[in-house]
Design a binder for these strands. Structure first.
Lengths: 349, 349
DNA sequence: TTGAAAGCGCTAACAC
DNA sequence: GTGTTAGCGCTTTCAA
């Protein structure tokens, strides 16, 4: 293994000079810099991560905590993870992948061991157990043992109480409102919402409830009747859900879907029943762009900006680590793209 | 920050004793052990990862390199990643997430810096650029600069030349054979294969080509006529592909699909054309279990054992790191589950 | 069964 | 613009 000392010797300079060439923290003469860089290349030197972390108290690693379950938004998760990894690298950080499995312990472990300099949490619940560990130093009375004052973190998602936290998310409230408004403007009076699996609501994931809020208040304002039904993914579950909906509200002409794995089943079922999209019924989806354009009917949809969220999260975290940035809640504005699945409500029979 | 020295002082023992309590590398009296453990708990001590890595030359981190592109198998990737993370934790390792973006440089960087003790590579191409860096110490003439003799690694996927490498994968050749044989036994004589996107073949990803091999040799043996068409995901692409297939081989009654995002479109299109599944045509898929059971017709399929591959990869890697295991190629036997999408070929008109 | 002490490879004062 | 040096917190001989 090549060490910094060996590089220094090879280049005929001191160890610190090599270190400073690498970090750029002090000015180096043209000549010296070149000799050092040449030696580095020639010897194939790579700074030792452990030694660096020990000496500098910075690991240059960001931890990303992803949900263990895969009952929702798998492609979104993946896209976020990739965006996080890519953006992190661009800022000189590597990414440590944690699953939700360990829960709050993972936060303690990673923060306590200095494994990562900061963390990004996905799938945040409204009252998330991990949050107390992350909130800025305001410990009520004295330090809690084993809990560092303040672990720099960014949440992707919005908990109930955001004080002392930095969060990034799509504005799901506005998203919900936008969806009903679109349908209302087209003359739809009865709208059904096909939501995530019941489990998603039960664990009080913020985004699902906030979308519902937005849908409801939007419906109130535009005089639309709303019916909300959670739905497991897949064809069979969707068939049952749809039957129930049409049973309770036969006049339903608008659908808002927030469940990727219900999209295609819904379209297939509507086709089977002879309900044309968008002539008889309109469908608006909240889903990744790719799902919307690959569906059997190109879907009017609000895209989930996965990449953007991942990028934002990293950039805010890096800013925080550099002391350039404080707590902040960023809600990305939803954008509704009209495609082939929504149109004017049919005139009543 | 709590250090080992502080714990030692608190417990009234030496630093090395605390270290040995933690590592279990030498026997400690009941009494001492308990005092130390008590101090650790009381002070909320977490060993510093950097210091540990520096002193022991082991980071206890496994690097996982995932593909950057998301043109295929997203849920599979995700499932593997989660399985890797979970299994790694169970063995005391954390997981560093690398994207394919950096290519071979990532291997050099991670290996050279001692950031990770070993790596797991996904999406391996037949002639992968990263492989020369991983192959066991057999450098032809002298060491190559910057390349450690042997970076412990496990591939998920199979390159053309597996010498000096450890690999885990589904036996895609057998998978292909199994699929045609199933259809052949049911009396199908014309089978069409709907494959991955052309890009997947162009970059010579092993699994796609090996599946095709298996399909072809299976077809030869059972006297089945085979037509293979790559296909981008989505409804429109599938429509075109299907039209071409039925144009060239109107008697096609069997389909093998190896492209998740073509499955549902195919089923919808067949329905639209009045071809009943499985009465008129049979469909066999190579896809994750979840996709098969959630489809609009429950699919006869060969499952992609994502979890199992992830787990295997970690366990082999850990064994290697402990010097318990050498190079090895493990091919998991495919299992075909018969569901509702395949049945006897219709008698010829 | 335990302690003392020498590093691991690097960073960042401090000195010139 | 460059060199010297004292740690960073842990592991692991060596010695008792």
């Amino acid at each position: 293994m090549v060490t910094l000392a060996e590089v220094a010797q090879h280049a005929g300079v001191s160890a610190s000079t090599v270190s400073y060439v690498l970090s750029g923290k002090r000015s180096i003469s043209m000549n010296t810099r070149q000799r050092v860089e040449e030696s580095i290349r020639e010897l194939g030197y790579h700074p030792n991560a452990g030694a660096r972390a020990l000496a500098s108290s910075r690991s240059n690693i960001i931890a990303l905590m992803i949900p263990l379950r895969t009952d929702m938004y798998v492609p979104v998760m993946m896209e976020i993870a990739i965006a996080v990894a890519t953006t992190a690298r661009a800022h000189g950080y590597d990414v440590l992948l944690l699953t939700g499995e360990e829960g709050p312990d993972a936060v303690r472990r990673v923060a306590g061991s200095g494994l990562a300099d900061g963390m990004i949490l996905m799938d945040v619940e409204l009252e998330d157990e991990r949050l107390p560990l992350l909130r800025g130093g305001a410990a009520p009375d004295g330090a809690r043992p084993g809990v560092p004052a303040d672990q720099p973190a960014v949440l992707i998602g919005l908990p109930a109480d955001t004080s002392g936290l930095t969060c990034v998310d799509l504005d799901f409230r506005a998203t919900g409102a936008l969806c009903v408004e679109h349908l209302a403007k087209l003359g739809h009076r009865d709208v059904a919402v096909i939501g995530e699996a019941p489990a998603v609501y039960e664990r009080h994931t913020g985004f699902a409830e906030r979308t519902l809020d937005g849908l409801r208040s939007g419906a109130r304002e535009s005089g639309v009747r709303l019916l909300h039904r959670p739905c497991e993914g897949g064809y069979d579950a969707m068939a049952l859900t749809l039957a129930r909906i049409l049973d309770e509200r036969p006049d339903t002409t608008g659908f808002v879907v927030q469940n990727e794995s219900a999209v295609e089943p819904l379209l297939a079922l509507l086709r089977q029943q002879g309900r044309a999209v968008p002539e008889d019924v309109s469908v608006v989806a909240v889903c990744p762009e790719q799902v919307a354009v690959q569906a059997s009917v190109r879907l009017t949809s609000v895209a989930i900006p996965a990449q953007e969220m991942g990028r934002y999260a990293v950039e805010h975290l890096v800013a925080k680590l550099d002391g350039r940035d404080g707590d902040e809640v960023v809600l990305l504005a939803p954008e509704l793209t009209v495609r082939a699945s929504s149109g004017p409500a049919p005139s009543r029979a």
